[in-house]
């Protein structure tokens, strides 16, 4: 343990209201602390710069998975274990369940939260590609009120996002429009389990009369943020998923992502694998 623990504070509010008041009263002083699976790693390494945290783990207002006819709504504290065991999510949002089952090991899945995964804003995070492909929306709450915004566009740059210091991520909402879609999720990590993604690919698609009616394509670990490849999607609309289309789509993908070399992989590898995954996804739509 390299951190000087006495300098850190983790305070436990009794309710969401109390947490929001604390966030509002001293802007920037307090930050949320959910499952801690990202924050504690930084703490251990002596690299957790911020000192004061609000323990939101116990806030039931931020828990639970609810479904209406049109949406499934997940509390920000929903854990990976909860995601995997929810029957609606398993049926209609299998990529999210797969992402959850491939996140860390069981102990991490019991503790890590979707909200933490989103706000931690790692480009290598495994749920965001699935969430983006499902057109998720997120709710931010503060004492000023609540606002819903599309998840797409929330992240603006490496660890940059549209959230104010007094806001908490409260809920995530998924439109139940996945019937008839092909779901394709593939995490390419450093090993088969307990791995950080080198490339993470999530896509859905639908064909009609042999042509691509709709695709949503998202790639992680290939840019400062997880990328929804809108240009590639546009280029694919109305095309047959043949070799020529695949080649054109790959060329488009290359323009939308900007992978780098790091201690886990190389830019070259990430680029090539992203192209392969796109090609493989499109090939699955061919039959």
């Amino acid at each position: 343990m390299r951190a000087f623990i006495p300098n850190y504070q983790l305070t436990t509010p009794a309710s969401l209201a109390e947490a929001l008041t604390l966030l509002e009263s001293e802007p920037g002083v307090w930050k949320p602390f959910a499952g801690g699976t990202d924050l504690m790693v930084l703490l251990e390494a002596g690299r957790l710069a911020h000192r004061n945290y609000i323990n939101i783990w116990g806030l039931n207002e931020l828990r639970g998975i609810e479904a209406t006819d049109t949406h499934v709504t997940l509390g920000a504290l929903t854990t990976y274990t909860e995601v995997q065991t929810n029957p609606i999510l398993r049926r209609e949002f299998p990529m999210l369940c797969q992402a959850a089952s491939e996140t860390g090991g069981l102990a991490i899945q019991n503790r890590g939260t979707l909200g933490g995964n989103i706000v931690n804003a790692s480009p290598a995070a495994d749920s965001p590609p699935a969430l983006l492909a499902y057109d998720a929306e997120i709710e931010l709450v503060s004492n000023r009120g609540s606002r819903w915004l599309p998840y797409q566009g929330f992240h603006t740059g490496y660890k940059q996002m549209h959230i104010d210091p007094d806001e908490l991520l409260a809920r995530i909402r998924l439109p139940r429009n996945t019937a008839g879609l092909t779901h394709y999720y593939r995490k390419v990590g450093t090993r088969k389990a307990q791995a950080i993604s080198k490339v993470c690919f999530a896509a859905v698609g639908k064909t009609g009369q042999g042509k691509l009616m709709e695709t949503r394509i998202v790639v992680g670990s290939v840019a400062p943020i997880v990328v929804r490849c809108v240009q590639t999607e546009a280029a694919l609309r109305g095309q047959r998923p043949d070799e020529e289309t695949i080649a054109a789509a790959c060329a488009s993908l290359v323009r939308e992502i900007s992978p780098i070399d790091d201690i886990r992989s190389t830019a070259k590898y990430r680029l090539q694998v992203a192209k392969n995954l796109l090609a493989d996804f499109l090939a699955t739509l061919r039959t």
């Binding site: 790693v41 390494a45 090991g105 450093t190 090993r191 088969k192 389990a193 307990q194 791995a195 950080i196 201690i263 886990r264």
Partner: peptide, 23 residues
């Protein structure tokens, strides 16, 4: 082992990859 000027740069279990039960 990823070396950077004679030093192991990936000196964490997250980044130095040993087989898990699944591998």
């Amino acid at each position: 082992v990823v070396w950077k000027d004679g030093r192991m740069a990936n000196n964490q279990m997250t980044n130095y990859i040993i087989p898990t039960p699944v591998d």
